[in-house]
Write a protein that binds this DNA or RNA. Structure first.
Lengths: 205, 205
DNA sequence: TAACAGCGAGACTGTACAGTACGGTATGTA
DNA sequence: TACATACCGTACTGTACAGTCTCGCTGTTA
């Protein structure tokens, strides 16, 4: 039982990696088998079809992706701007990693397959809810003006991903953006977010 | 000469439509031929390979996509908020159409092929520059606070696409969002944008 | 030792597709 | 009439791949 679980997981990991880097259509079961070691019969012993293997991989990818972004999410302490910037900078660094970009590309390309996209959005909504709860607290404490916290959370995310993620998705450059570029993008996002949600008249940073 | 141009364009249009709705891998040259009428030999007479036919389609798609968003872009007249809202609402409606979503999905999925993604980004940059120029004028006139107009343009676009476009890309629903939902998203985006870039202390709308 | 289960290796089947070959047709031009 | 151009229809080739099957090895249990 132990050993077969390991085997299954190993196949899953290998498939995950190959799908992520090559896409669904360009990854063959033979390739997965060869890479994982063993034989096709064994792979088909664990997974009934390429489709089902793929869907299970995508569920994992979806988890990893979202956990990666707001994994370190927790109540902000101290100066709001500083805490926000830290969180956001970390998230953006993860978002711009080659692995996450490959995941997102795959998610979008194959979104319709077996409702993978819906799954992703539902999970993302969960995390957005958590971020919103934190922002609501900041609003109640007067660190931000009152407003719809869920909308604020989504707009913060939008400002963060603005431009830079699309540019990466479109493969403008092969390497992920430098730490400097990422930091700059995060600062711009936080500055604009705080300006929009400032409690009163200290819009500019 | 006239006729061959028509024929070529007809093949291109057909391929465009099929690629857009089914993706690259799931569309065969035989299917394109059957749909367009005529024979494979004729298709191969105009396009040396599936790859090159695809790339030419993607160039068209890329054009259509970007033209569609800010096609009606022109200097804002009258009340800034009203003009901005009109422009942005129109753009979002286009962005959320099934055709544009299919285009974007395809662009992302096949971005690496023949530098299609880079082409898209370069064109998008052009339009962002135009929007930035308009915003700069609003800044100079005191309708917006001073700031980096290009950054402002990108953030406006980010706020606009926030959430709703991703949700569509992920195929959460098959039909495009209703006019009401789109209008609401546009209003939220403009409100937050104006709050962030307000010239002084009238943040809330 | 014997029987068996799990697995590896890889041959095999059926299918789909990119791209080619070829024979025939319609239209226009000299 | 003779020829050329552009096209159609379709059969064909070679390749790739999902999924199956067979065989042989190895470790385990009785």
């Amino acid at each position: 039982m132990r050993k077969t679980d390991q085997k299954r997981q190993h196949i899953l990991d290998t498939a995950y990696r190959l799908f992520q880097s090559q896409g669904f259509a360009n990854t063959s079961m033979s390739e997965i088998t060869a890479e994982a070691g063993g034989s096709k019969a064994t792979v088909y012993n664990y997974f009934p079809s390429k489709e089902e293997l793929f869907v299970e991989c995508m569920t994992n990818i979806s988890d990893q992706y979202i956990d990666g972004i707001f994994g370190g999410l927790q109540d902000f302490e101290g100066e709001l701007q500083v805490a926000l910037l830290d969180t956001v900078k970390y998230a953006l660094r993860v978002l711009c990693s080659l692995e996450m970009l490959a995941s997102k590309r795959l998610l979008i390309a194959e979104a319709e397959r077996s409702g993978i996209g819906r799954l992703f959005c539902r999970k993302m909504d969960g995390y957005m809810g958590e971020l919103a709860a934190i922002l609501r607290r900041a609003m109640d404490e007067g660190q931000l003006r009152q407003g719809d916290p869920l909308l604020a959370a989504r707009q913060l995310r939008a400002l963060l991903e603005a431009d830079i993620v699309e540019r990466c998705l479109m493969g403008v450059q092969t390497a992920p953006p430098s730490a400097v570029v990422i930091a700059r993008a995060a600062e711009d996002a936080v500055a604009t977010f705080l300006a929009a949600y400032a409690p009163c008249c200290d819009a500019d940073t």
